[in-house]
Design a protein around this nucleic acid. Structure first.
Lengths: 240, 240
DNA sequence: CGATCCTTTGAGAGGTCTCAATTCGCGTGG
DNA sequence: CCACGCGAATTGAGACCTCTCAAAGGATCG
């Protein structure tokens, strides 16, 4: 494993301007930022490993991270992709419950959990903000359970594209195309499919002009309505 | 829908002795308990419906509740079973994201969300407690994603039994048998399987003496080790 | 410009589903 | 107390979707 470049995060006075605690006030928040560590991670590098003891909550500042769990025999389930501004590692109690791996070059900030827990009791709004983040994650997870348990391959892929487009819009994009830095295998492991099935489903989507691919990593969305129909099981004659 | 019996929850002085806020202190908590409503629900009755506007967080006091989501064409994914002492409805923002339905006769307590949010800022530890609950739910959800996306039918059923037994122990049971008030269809919809497959997988488990069924609703566990092996994909020769 | 990894495409196997019928369990009413 | 009726559970046979295994075709990077 590569050596990591780490550095202390610069302290700013008064109202926080960075990170998930942005806008919160409280002198003791300074402690949190003083104790936080910035870390650069190369693609494919593992940030934390399932089962590791970890005393940190991570915030992605740059790049994309994938979270996954493994079965004892190596099957993999990607539980989420994390983009800048989002946290991961909240749902830990002692040991980390998933592996976090950088997909692109990534910058993360580590917040010591003990300090965070301590501050949650002191800083008004901090615990609520963390609760809100956990809640949003929970909603996503429940939607994903429906997808994994009850949707077909086509529905899964269409749902994935629609959701990624919506996320992109939420992050300030225009929703007409999405950037997918992850591999087909990652997408498959996120949707409960194999790499091959992901490819096989993409083909008719391209053939029918619903989407097109650019540079392997960009999906251009031509027919958003059809995607939503497919995502909802309205396949009326769609075959692949 | 049946008329509901509702009643105000009795106020107790000083330290809270009931509910998820047990042990917390704070005069304003009284407001929460004064505003909470106790409600009895018959089996099969729907407590809240996916998409409904709901301004409450629910605590199950008695009985078992199932939470599920539906696809537009009626496929169902059960996202969880809720037992006494657990909350649901935390992950809502405006509209409810799943349907909650009573499996057994159920008693729930409704807490007004607005009041809860307000108190979270005032009562030390309340937001953290809610965060802890959400976090535990999140861990469960991630484990379930691995199950739904990557496990076989046998692994799913074995995992389910093991997890239910562990939950039963956590609630004070002995773990040698579990009570399953839900139907095979509910179990199937929880595991991403059909009713028939659930039955078909149970048979060899009984044949091999790993479990036995009593009164349709109780699973007696004879060989916990084998179940754990099966849950982890160690099927060495297990066929059905 | 070679090497490697990723993606695509193909053919066949297999696990789970669908559809259908039977059996079982339990509450109801005679 | 027993027969009935209805929903749930089980069992069976065949279909289908996705996976597995395999090979060829691209893309990227040194």
């Amino acid at each position: 494993m590569l050596a990591l470049r780490t550095q202390k995060v610069a302290r700013s006075g008064g109202v926080r301007r960075i990170g998930f605690a942005e806008g919160l006030q409280g002198g003791s928040l300074d402690d949190l930022f003083l104790a936080s560590v910035r870390r650069s991670v190369a693609p494919r590098e593992i940030i934390v490993c399932e089962g590791d003891r970890s005393d940190s909550v991570f915030e992605v500042v740059e790049g994309v991270v994938k979270l996954y769990k493994l079965t004892p025999d190596g099957r993999r389930q990607v539980t989420g992709f994390v983009y800048p501004g989002q946290l991961f590692g909240l749902s830990q109690q002692g040991a980390c419950i998933y592996t976090a791996e950088a997909i692109t070059p990534v910058v993360v900030v580590l917040y010591p959990r003990a300090k965070l827990d301590h501050l949650a009791a002191l800083v008004p709004g901090l615990a609520q903000r963390m609760l809100a983040l956990a809640t949003r994650e929970l909603i996503t997870a429940q939607e994903q359970m429906l997808l994994l348990g009850r949707k077909t391959a086509v529905e899964k892929i269409a749902s994935f594209i629609v959701a990624q487009a919506a996320d992109a819009v939420a992050r300030g994009g225009d929703g007409s195309s999405i950037y997918l830095p992850m591999t087909r295998a990652d997408i498959g492991d996120y949707l409960g499919l194999t790499t091959e099935t992901v490819s096989r489903v993409f083909k008719p989507l391209k053939t029918r002009g619903i989407v097109s691919l650019r540079q392997q990593k960009y999906v251009v969305i031509h027919d958003h309505t059809s995607l939503i129909n497919l995502a909802n099981g309205n396949l009326h004659g769609f075959e692949y």
